[in-house]
Amino acid sequence: MTGVPAHAAPAASAPDHLGDPVQPKAGLWNIANLLTMARLVLVPGFVLLLLHGDGHDPAWRSFAWAAFAIAMITDLFDGELARRYGLVTDFGKIADPIADKAIMGAALVGLSALGDLPWWVTVVILVRELGITLLRFWVIRHAVIPASRGGKMKTLAQGIAVGMYILMLTGPLATVRAWMMAIAVILTVATGLDYVRQAIVLRRAGLAAERAAAVAAAAAVPDGAEAGASAGAKAIGVGAVPGAAPPVATAAATAAAGTAAAAAAESGAGAGAGGAGTAAGADDSDADDLDSGVSAELSAGAGAGAGVGADADFAAETPAAERQHGV
């Protein structure tokens, strides 16, 4: 026995991080955020290159493709660098998805405006991207929807297909880019439905956990009330003698016992006087000596019995608690 309470002793399995170096908080101007900023700056430049002239100049379309390719490459590296080297910041969390949607949306809308890409393809992809972003905010209070492998494949397919549409391709390459865009649209719809399913499951699980916590909290309230009532009862009963009546009841019992004792004493006194008179009559009459002596003894016995009865009545009517304390 060491004398130390068990709850005061440190847990043996608890890790000690006192000597660990403090990780500095990542600043705004780090390599990951700089890549994200560069991608945001490239968006208006890309639009100008894509729509230069009539929008169908192969040279300017090639420049636009280069800007789009740089933006997509930076998208692959900024997130990986931020996670690997601890460069995650609030700015990066907000700016990175905005930059992704901005460059892809600008390319899709520009190609559809030029007549190179059907508008329904642009609408399907943009509705899916914006819808999933809103869906993430819908369930962010309960859980985070993780990026799936299908989502990464979708991003890669979209980047390749849109890049091929930016270039002025003809012949078999034009057919290849059409098939590539079809694959991108299928992956876009499929992964979008999967994200919707995940969001519904995560939200239901979160709501169920909240309801369970609310029920547990409500069930704990009566227990606390009962504990408070018990503590109050104990506080009221402090100092009370076991078996003793409350103060008011004790006073009433004492008064009743005094009245009964006085009545019994008066009865005993009267019986004693009668016995004494009978004994005197026996001394004056010699003829009735024997009879009078017997009568005197009987009277004296009656008086003594009355006194004993009075004492017994007083003892019976006196509460046990008063006899115990000598009242």
Results as ranks from 00 to 15, higher is better:
A161S: 14
V127T: 10
L51H: 11
A321H: 14
G275A: 15
A227C: 02
V121W: 02
V139A: 03
S13I: 03
A212I: 07
L28K: 08
S230F: 03
K152V: 02
L87Y: 10
G303N: 09
V215C: 01
A280H: 05
L173A: 12
P97V: 02
T254E: 13
D223N: 08
A256Y: 04
R83C: 01
G19Q: 12
T2V: 03
R61N: 09
L187K: 11
V238E: 08
V241H: 12
R323E: 06
S230L: 15
G237Y: 06
G232P: 01
E129V: 04
A249D: 15
G105T: 04
M164H: 05
R39G: 11
V238Y: 02
A64M: 08
P97L: 05
W65P: 01
A244D: 13
G45Y: 14
V248E: 14
P319T: 04
I200E: 11
L50N: 15
D291C: 00
V308L: 14
G258A: 13
L49K: 05
V327R: 15
L111E: 12
G232T: 09
P44V: 07
L187V: 11
A14D: 05
A69Q: 03
M1G: 15
H325W: 10
V248L: 14
L51M: 13
A14R: 13
A312Y: 02
W60E: 08
W120N: 03
I94C: 01
R136T: 12
G301Y: 11
S267Y: 02
I186K: 01
S148P: 04
A199I: 10
H17V: 09
R197E: 10
G92R: 00
A263M: 12
D289V: 10
A182K: 05
T2F: 03
V162P: 08
I94W: 04
G192N: 08
A190N: 08
